[in-house]
Computed example of a mutant assay.
Amino acid sequence: MNFLSKTIGFFINLISYISPKLAGKLALSLFSTPFRGKKFNEKESDFLDTAFKEELQHEDLNIMTYRWLGKNKTILLAHGWESNATRWQPLVESLKTQNYNIIALDAPAHGRSGSKKFNAILYSEFINIVSKKFNPDIIIGHSVGGMATVFYQHKYQNTELEKLVLLGAPSNFTGVFNRYVEMMGYNKKVDKQMNEIVLEKYGHLPAYFSAADFTKNIDTSALLIHDERDRIIPYQDAKSFEQNYANAQLITTQGFGHSLNNETIIEYINKYITN
């Protein structure tokens, strides 16, 4: 994968000497295109078939939702990059035993939801549409699903939302961006053009989109869980959240990696949302 990434980066770097803007567009398009998370195997399909499915709309994009009905509080689940709603099966099975009303969605360009491109800003709009429909008391987000959850609550300030759970969430867009640039080996021309395209499209440079900074104006109680050995999102991101998010507590794990998808994590979540 590293060799392939560097090879693609090399060719995009070459293009940057002819057309920096084209090189920036290609690099950003690659950055925004998930290559996994669309297809379901038989076991995953069987799990999703146990849910009530409903499509919602954001502009011209469909949002696929899955519901497991219960009479307890409503919990919304937002998965991460190159994943889909099936990643929540162990947690869903646990929450069902406690009669929670559970909603999961597929992110943009993932699972059965629409869009060819993905980013946390668009994802936050998906979360907004789903939240308007189902009125969650709690949102649990993994990885960039956690970042998108923060973007959502920062923008919309949902006062009905009681708790957030952020699992291995990136604290800022700059770090994600920089790790991508480093992985691909892009030169400064490509890096600069990517930043300028983001500025042109969203009105801000990538540095503005700091989930950790956004939490300064979020009062909603939150649980942060992050593994010290997370190789995808550095543990320092969790510390950034902790330093900025006044109403949050951090649980640090060791040896669970980035997925944070096991019985121990489920126990932490159950204890937090029950109290």
Rank of each mutant, 00 (worst) to 15 (best):
N261I: 00
N135H: 14
I18Y: 11
K189S: 12
L30F: 06
L69S: 13
Q249E: 12
L26F: 03
I102F: 07
T159D: 13
I8E: 06
A104F: 02
L28N: 07
E242R: 13
P234I: 04
P170K: 02
Q254A: 11
N135L: 15
D227K: 06
E182A: 08
F118G: 00
E93D: 15
F256G: 08
L250M: 12
F241N: 08
P20Q: 06
Y152G: 04
I103A: 11
R231Q: 14
I251F: 06
Y156A: 06
N13A: 07
K188D: 15
D49H: 11
A78Y: 00
L22F: 09
I232K: 10
E93V: 11
F241L: 05
E44L: 03
L205Y: 13
Y245Q: 05
I139W: 03
N187C: 11
T159N: 14
L199W: 02
G185N: 05
I251H: 07
F177G: 02
G168P: 00
L122T: 04
E196C: 00
L122C: 00
R231A: 10
T159E: 14
N72F: 00
N195H: 09
G24E: 05
F31Q: 02
F134C: 07
Q153A: 11
Y268T: 13
R36M: 12
Q193G: 03
Q157D: 10
Y17K: 14
V176C: 00
G185P: 03
S16L: 11
G9R: 06
G141F: 01
F31R: 04
E263S: 15
Y17L: 15
T253C: 07
H58N: 12
I232F: 01
K117V: 03
M1G: 15
K6N: 11
I63V: 06
T33V: 02
H58F: 15
F134N: 08
T65L: 06
N172I: 07
S16Q: 10
P90C: 05
M194D: 05
I138P: 01
W88H: 10
S5T: 08
K163W: 01
V181L: 02
G37H: 01
K73G: 02
H58P: 01
P206A: 08
G70L: 09
Y156D: 05
I197D: 07
A104G: 05
E54V: 04
D46R: 11
V165C: 06
K21L: 13
H58A: 09
L122V: 08
M194F: 02
Q254F: 12
L161I: 08
K117S: 09
D219S: 14
T33G: 01
Q236F: 13
Q157V: 08
G203P: 04
H226P: 04
L28I: 10
P136F: 03
